[in-house]
Write a protein that binds this DNA or RNA. Structure first.
Lengths: 156, 156
DNA sequence: TATTGTTATACTCTATAACTATA
DNA sequence: TATAGTTATAGAGTATAACAATA
């Protein structure tokens, strides 16, 4: 994420619409992500979460019983980063490490009842923030964007 | 960017296709950006650049004569980060700070001849990497993705 | 008074290597 | 031999605050 400022994020852009970067999908992706991450972190702050801890909590609150390795792969984090994220959530009582009965090396990360409740509330804030950010798009456009991003995010 | 691993980035995803995050545009944007940034940085490394220095050089190589402030706004960087980026490029002789004749506070950042040449070569590498990453999309899909990302990256 | 570039500082995120206990 | 989790460390990126020169 990049520093969030109060002024409009455009301004200089008006003069640079035809910059060498204007058609660069990597640049557009990075800038869109920076705005999205800034808005997401701001919305999650009242729940004591950030984007990464929120995404770990979201997966722990589902029915997948992901191992830490699963979390690392899905979230594109190094396993060592998952340790710190799970530690933080576990200290707050939002997730538990449970032994995987089929593999004594592995921990399964599951949300506690409180974790599920915090996740539920945080997901409302996150959704609100996202809708505010994407208010310029029709619901069809959002749908299309999701399909295109899924193709990039999870290549065949 | 997240650590780049040799194995497929999917794996855990197969079991989590229907995770609470699977439809989260912010998450998809973050994951797609992580892959894009990793590929971009890898492609730019042989030119001694990274995504951020490349984007500064790209704008300095255009016809805009951007001030450091312009660069900060367009790239969503703090002005203090631009100082460091321009310092690095200037030390390598790829850009110059020129006084803005209309505002003695401001520097205009322009690419040197060598900077333009490095940029030209780097842009080929960047384009190749991007095409490899987006090979799953038709050119119409890429066009559509660009339009949607522009709407998010540069809100009205 | 406000803005441009700058310095300084702290924090978060990313990347790598090595270790242990299991498989 | 390989994998899951962990520890440690370094480097890159993000966020704030303050200052001098200029508008």
């Amino acid at each position: 994420m990049v520093k969030q400022r109060d002024d409009s994020p455009v301004e200089a852009g008006d003069a640079m619409r035809e910059s060498p970067l204007a058609d660069d999908l990597s640049f557009l992706l990075a800038r869109a992500n920076a705005l999205s991450l800034a808005a997401g972190n701001a919305a999650l702050a009242e729940h004591g979460l950030r984007a990464r801890s929120y995404s770990v909590l979201a997966l722990a609150a589902g029915d997948f019983r992901p191992s830490q390795r699963d979390l690392a792969e899905y979230l594109r984090l190094d396993p060592s980063q998952v340790v710190a994220l799970v530690d933080g959530l576990q200290t707050r009582g939002l997730v538990r490490r449970e032994p995987d009965p089929t593999d004594r090396r592995a921990n399964v990360v599951v949300a506690t009842d409180e974790g599920r409740e915090i996740y539920r509330r945080a997901s409302v804030s996150a959704r609100d923030a996202e809708q505010r950010l994407h208010r310029g798009l029709t619901s069809e456009a959002r749908e299309e964007l999701g399909a295109l991003l899924r193709a990039l995010a999870f290549p065949a």
